[in-house]
Design a protein around this nucleic acid. Structure first.
Lengths: 238, 238
DNA sequence: CTCCGGGAAGCGTGATCACAATTCGAAGCT
DNA sequence: AGCTTCGAATTGTGATCACGCTTCCCGGAG
């Protein structure tokens, strides 16, 4: 489950493994906003000493994927609807352009992979497999973005997903009734047709639709402190 | 020297002090690209144990403000002209909008502060004080951006400055001969006139000019591995 | 029953040590 | 003289421990 490679074969350190594990949980929406984590707790859970966890958590705090409160305690950030809207604005500002620049780098094999991923996505959607859906959606987008070969845009976009991740689960719960246009399908067609502008628009619309599903409903709309408005959807996490 | 406040009074930890110090050095262009740093070296230099340095450096690596090579050694990243161009694209995509959203939040006192900062900037420019110029430029931009009150946009933009910082020094060396329009002055006028669009355009042009000064010259243009093309401008750093 | 206070448990932080890998130096060989 | 080679020093990593601080819980006073 993707992250952009900062180097090649240095992923065998304990702290990096912890970092990637937590990252995957956040992007996959497996950690509910507001949930607090502890160094020793994660260490025991992941079978390592608190030391690598300290480093991994520190990195995620720097990326604002985790939040350090005044008491020095670490938790998954809660975001106001406004925060989410700004995150989505940033995504709209960056991702369509990344897709546009990626177009030339997407070969036939990548297109086939996109089709396969999108099929999996639909299956997960019908089977009610939230984890699978989120993972497939992430894979779909970043299969495109990574083709632009940018060491700047892709990590930047990933940092946005990292922060939206915990709220992505909400989208799933509302996607059944609001499904109108399949922007993924439109994106694939644009890629096959070599139409960069159509691809950028498809990505933009896909983001906007997700945004609409997120902010359209309650989503702790008037109780930003509790962050438990979507408790039924976010499940226990951990 | 600004960073967005993640919390209020937790800046008295050693690792946070180290983090902010290194951040300031990077944004201020006081660490030359390609320069490698060591945990124990920084620890001795800053008068702390290697432990807080480890955490601070880890965070900066996560933000890609520092780079961890395959040998696990940490250094200031070298960037290709393409990397810089992408960074600048992201700045153009985010900063004008942040300024637009900030307009309403800029009161008279902030305008006065902007004028003062811009005056200082000009002075540093005439006196040849690179550090002062870079610091004033940073202060000017973020006085505006912070007024938008976004916990998303401002940190995101700051992460971009963090990565461009080591190359900012190059801009200064070329600014004397290429100075055409004072975009800062235009920005202040737009703020006073309440013209959001003019403000956004002024910011965009200011970014573009800096970009032009950066990629216009050599800047390790064909030797991305050495990164010493601008050695005369980047000075020893450390 | 409510409220408050004190102690124990748990928290992040930082220091120190051990270890494996890498780097760098100088000596020795061809 | 140039190249190889071997060893010492340095590096990041991880574990363990001690220290303040906060939080939580449980018992006692009102």
């Amino acid at each position: 489950m993707g992250q952009t490679e900062p180097a090649e074969a240095l992923r065998q350190t304990a702290h990096d493994r912890v970092y990637r594990e937590l990252r995957a949980r956040l992007i996959g929406g497996r950690m509910a906003p507001g949930r607090s984590v502890t160094l020793r707790g994660l260490a025991a859970e992941l079978g390592v000493s608190p030391m690598p966890v300290r480093e991994a958590v520190g990195r995620l705090v720097a990326e604002r994927a985790l939040e350090m409160k005044a008491n020095r305690r670490v938790s998954v950030p809660e975001m106001t609807p406004r925060d989410i809207a700004e995150l989505v604005f940033a995504r709209e500002a960056l991702e369509p352009e990344a897709a546009r620049r990626a177009l030339a780098g997407i070969d036939r094999k990548a297109v086939a992979r996109l089709r396969r991923t999108d099929d999996e996505l639909e299956q997960h959607l019908q089977l009610g497999n939230v984890e699978g859906y989120v993972a497939a959606n992430h894979a779909f987008h970043f299969t495109i973005y990574r083709a632009c070969g940018s060491a700047v845009l892709v990590p930047l976009i990933e940092s946005l997903w990292l922060r939206i991740g915990p709220f992505m689960r909400v989208v799933y719960g509302r996607i059944g009734t609001n499904w109108v246009v399949d922007h993924h399908e439109a994106a694939i067609r644009a890629i096959e047709g070599g139409d960069a502008e159509a691809l950028a628009l498809a990505i933009r619309d896909d983001i906007r639709e997700g945004m609409g599903l997120m902010t359209g409903g309650s989503l702790q709309a008037d109780a930003p402190e509790t962050g438990q408005g979507e408790a039924a959807l976010t499940r226990g996490g951990l």
